[in-house]
Amino acid sequence: MKAIRTLIVDDEPLARRGLELRLARHADIEIVGEAGNGRHALQAISSLRPQLMFLDVQMPGIDGFGLLRMLPATQIPLTVFVTAYDHYALAAFAASALDYLLKPVDDVRLDESVERARARLAARKTEDHYERLLKIIGTLPAAHRSRIDGFLGDEDPGAGGRLTIKDGNRMVRIDVASIRWIDAAGDYMCIHAGDETHVLRGTMQQLERRLDPRKFARIHRSTIVNLERVDQMRPHVNGEYFLVLDSGHELKLSRSYRDKLKLFT
């Protein structure tokens, strides 16, 4: 039986301990780490590469949704939300997340979550999972959103070095040089710029037309990277590579985009 590498993220030590004890009943669940806040979770995911994560939604500082927005899409583990959220949000979780658990956690529901994780990993549908997670952001109440329902501005950012997006009735200008990478999932995109992540509606094709191809490259069907932010490149498997950014984040260069290797040499 192959172990499922699992990370527990919750700001309450007793809650983490409770999940750990309950998960011990499953022989194939290997707890590889725990994190008490979003910042430590970012580090743990990067170094431990868990396949499954139990994630508390409400945490001080970087909350559960903020953590997901800050991660490269290909590093997001299968995620089970642990929450005390209202029914509106639960409907979104049920439609898009692997699963959600209400506090206090019920053993039967926890077992169901573990079984869902087993089935998803067996079917190798993790890529579909992180696309669904990004779409969750678009269904959240306003207090838990970041730049939702923005549309790309019409102007070319090349001349002024800024990209304009529409956020409700106001325009937000992003310094193009500050963009590290962009993830796309369906009708949503996450623009990771500086310490912020801007989530907006749009397509990769729309955004690619507005970015300088000498500075921004498509390295995956759902990822664009700023070439000037890449510090290292290391081979992976089957012709794939990992790109290490100046922020420490790692992005996968898919073998379908191996022609882009020349841009990094």
Rank of each mutant, 00 (worst) to 15 (best):
N37H: 14
I31Q: 08
Q58H: 15
P50Y: 06
L19Q: 02
H26D: 03
E20S: 10
L21Y: 05
H26A: 02
G38A: 08
L23G: 01
L67I: 09
G64Q: 10
G38F: 03
G66L: 07
I29R: 04
E34S: 12
D28K: 05
G61S: 10
F54S: 02
G38C: 07
L19N: 01
Q58C: 06
R49D: 13
H40W: 00
D28Q: 11
E34M: 13
G66P: 14
R22D: 04
S47V: 05
A24R: 14
A44N: 11
L52S: 06
L42C: 11
L19P: 05
S46G: 13
G36W: 00
P60Q: 13
A35R: 01
P60I: 10
G64C: 12
Q51S: 13
G36V: 02
D56R: 06
L23K: 01
L67Y: 12
V32P: 01
G61I: 08
V57M: 08
I31W: 12
R39Y: 00
V32T: 15
R25A: 14
S46I: 00
D63Y: 13
I29K: 04
I45A: 05
G38M: 05
A24P: 06
E20V: 00
I45P: 01
E30L: 13
D63T: 10
N37Q: 09
R39H: 07
A41P: 13
I62P: 12
L42F: 04
R25S: 11
L42S: 14
E34G: 01
A44G: 10
P50W: 05
G36S: 14
L42V: 11
G64P: 14
A41S: 13
R22E: 07
G61H: 05
D63F: 13
R25T: 05
R17H: 11
L42W: 07
E30C: 04
M59Q: 08
G18F: 07
M59R: 11
R17D: 12
R22Q: 12
D28F: 10
I45E: 01
D63N: 15
F65K: 08
L67K: 06
I62R: 09
R49V: 03
E20K: 13
N37E: 13
A27G: 06
E20L: 03
L21T: 04
R39P: 00
G18L: 02
A44S: 15
Q51W: 01
Q58S: 11
A41E: 10
D56F: 15
E20A: 03
I62A: 09
F65D: 01
L23V: 04
L55T: 06
L67A: 03
L55H: 05
L21R: 12
A41Y: 09
F54W: 08
M53P: 08
G18Y: 07
L19Y: 11
I45D: 01
L67V: 09
H40V: 01
Q51I: 02
R25C: 03
F65P: 11
D63K: 09
Q43D: 15
G61M: 09
V32D: 07
Q58V: 12
L42K: 15
G18S: 11
H40F: 00
F65E: 02
F65G: 02
D28I: 09
D28P: 07
A44D: 12
G64I: 14
L52V: 06
I45L: 05
I29H: 04
P50E: 11
A24L: 04
L42R: 15
